[in-house]
């Protein structure tokens, strides 16, 4: 089901008679309406970030910023948003925390999963199958079954309000090992590994010189998804970070949202949302081809 399949020939719906004009207009109408459904919230986010508070909380909202202001962004970065807001964390601090979480989680995870994926794909040793089944079984279990002890373990270790709970446990993601193993088994011929062995390469040498240079595509896909999940994470960050200086961007925005203000600061939250989304959109467009290809080949599970 989740096997990485080799390039599937692009099937063209050939021989299909041209659509009549009426149904073609209908199809485009549906596509455009759905496009509006998917784009309108982004539009609202960008527009709202340039709108003053009273316009956003007016009973007759406008769909265009009038007047157009940029003070939401300056307030966000100075931390001086609203005197009634208890949280004063400057946004740049949250950005730094998010970046630290995402990079510190993704880079070691890629290293570990590719190494373990290689050993599982190309080496046979006692206990290999049992160990791999252990990894597979935890993939099927929903996170709810372990989140309580996870939190208790982190408190016991004294890791609350540090980066460790968002780094170390995620260096060993089961789905990453699974995908790496599938990819390496399917794309790297055994002969290459054998040849390296004859040349006297060590296991680590094979990994470094043969495996690493050949797993670019899967590393890109896993890297982006991992980075994205870490950058957007709420469920785990929320339980291990409660010091205002350690919050990530989603946590800070959520604190703004949950603040008991009589009139919510939608403009500032929208500005923060715009800035938090931009890096992901850039990463997405740079790696779009691999990411979409990876998902379409059925390789990636949500």
């Amino acid at each position: 089901m989740a096997e990485m399949s080799a390039a599937i020939p692009q099937s063209q719906v050939v021989g299909q008679s041209r659509m009549p004009a009426f149904s073609r207009i209908l199809v485009y109408l549906v596509l455009i309406m759905l496009g509006i459904f998917f784009m309108f919230p982004f539009y609202a986010m960008v527009i709202a970030s340039f709108m003053p508070r009273n316009a956003l909380n007016s009973i007759t909202p406008t769909l265009w910023p009038n007047p157009f202001i940029t003070s939401n962004y300056t307030a966000l970065f100075s931390g001086e948003i609203n005197p009634d807001l208890i949280v004063k964390t400057p946004f740049i601090r949250a950005l730094f925390n998010s970046l630290a979480v995402a990079i510190g989680q993704t880079v070691p995870a890629l290293l570990f999963t590719s190494l373990v994926g290689f050993v599982f794909a190309k080496r046979r040793f006692p206990g290999r199958n049992i160990l791999f089944y252990c990894v597979l079984v935890t993939m099927m279990l929903p996170y709810q079954s372990t989140i309580v002890p996870f939190f208790l373990l982190m408190s016991r270790l004294g890791w609350i309000n540090t980066f460790w709970p968002l780094w170390i446990p995620w260096w060993a993601p089961a789905w990453g090992v699974f995908l790496m193993r599938q990819f390496i088994a399917a794309t790297i011929p055994d002969e290459l590994i054998d040849a390296a062995a004859i040349d006297g390469a060590s296991l680590l040498g094979m990994y470094w010189r043969i495996v690493l240079p050949l797993i670019g595509p899967i590393t890109a896909v896993l890297g982006i998804l991992n980075f994205m999940n870490a950058w957007n994470d709420f469920i785990y960050s929320n339980i291990v970070m409660n010091d205002p200086n350690m919050v990530t961007v989603p946590l800070l925005l959520n604190l703004f949202k949950g603040a008991t203000l009589t009139v919510p600061e939608y403009g500032v939250m929208a500005a923060g949302s715009v800035i938090a989304t931009i890096p992901l959109i850039i990463v997405f467009f740079v790696f779009q081809r691999w990411l979409i290809g990876g998902i379409m080949s059925g390789a990636i599970k949500a």
Partner: peptide, 20 residues
């Protein structure tokens, strides 16, 4: 275009939906 919402943080989505 249809895929872009998938990469947006749930917190941000909630903020926009509350605004809307």
């Amino acid at each position: 275009l249809y895929f872009l919402p998938y990469i947006t943080s749930a917190v941000i989505v909630a903020i926009i939906f509350q605004l809307l």
